[in-house]
Computed example of a mutant assay.
Amino acid sequence: MAAKPIIIDCDPGVDDAIALLLAFASPELNLLGITTVAGNVPLSLTAKNARKICELAGRTQIPVYAGCSRPMMRSLTTAEEVHGKTGLEGVDLPEPQMPLQSQHGVDFLIDTLMSSSGEITVATLGPLTNLAIALIKEPRIAAKIPEVVLMGGAISQGNVTASAEFNLYVDPHAAHVMFSSGIKLTMFSLDVTHQVLTTPERLEKIRAIATPVGTAAANLLGHYSSRDAERFEMTGGPLHDPCVIAYLLQPDLFNYRDCYVEIETASELTLGRTVVDLWNSSGRSPNTKVAQTADSERFYQLLTERLAKL
Rank of each mutant, 00 (worst) to 15 (best):
K4S: 03
C10F: 01
C10K: 02
D11L: 00
L22Q: 07
A25N: 13
P27N: 08
N30S: 13
T35Y: 05
G39S: 11
P42K: 13
P42A: 06
S44C: 07
S44P: 03
S44E: 15
A47C: 09
R51F: 04
E55Y: 05
L56P: 04
G58Q: 14
Y65G: 03
C68T: 15
M73D: 13
S75I: 14
T77W: 15
A79I: 11
E80H: 14
G87R: 06
L88F: 04
E95C: 02
Q97M: 10
L100P: 03
Q101H: 10
F108Y: 09
L109G: 01
S115V: 05
S116C: 00
V122C: 00
A123I: 04
A123C: 06
L125D: 05
I141Y: 03
K144T: 01
G153L: 09
N159W: 05
A164T: 02
A164W: 05
F166L: 10
L168W: 13
H176L: 10
V177M: 00
F179R: 01
K184L: 03
L190G: 15
L190D: 13
V192S: 12
V196M: 08
E201H: 11
E201F: 08
L203D: 08
L203N: 09
I206E: 04
A218P: 09
S225C: 06
R227E: 12
R227P: 02
R227D: 08
R231F: 13
R231D: 12
M234H: 06
G236A: 09
G236M: 11
D241F: 06
L248R: 03
Q250L: 04
F254M: 09
F254V: 05
D258L: 08
I263P: 02
L269F: 08
G272N: 11
T274S: 13
V276G: 01
D277Y: 09
D277L: 14
L278T: 09
N280I: 07
T288G: 01
T293K: 09
D295V: 13
F299P: 15
L302Y: 02
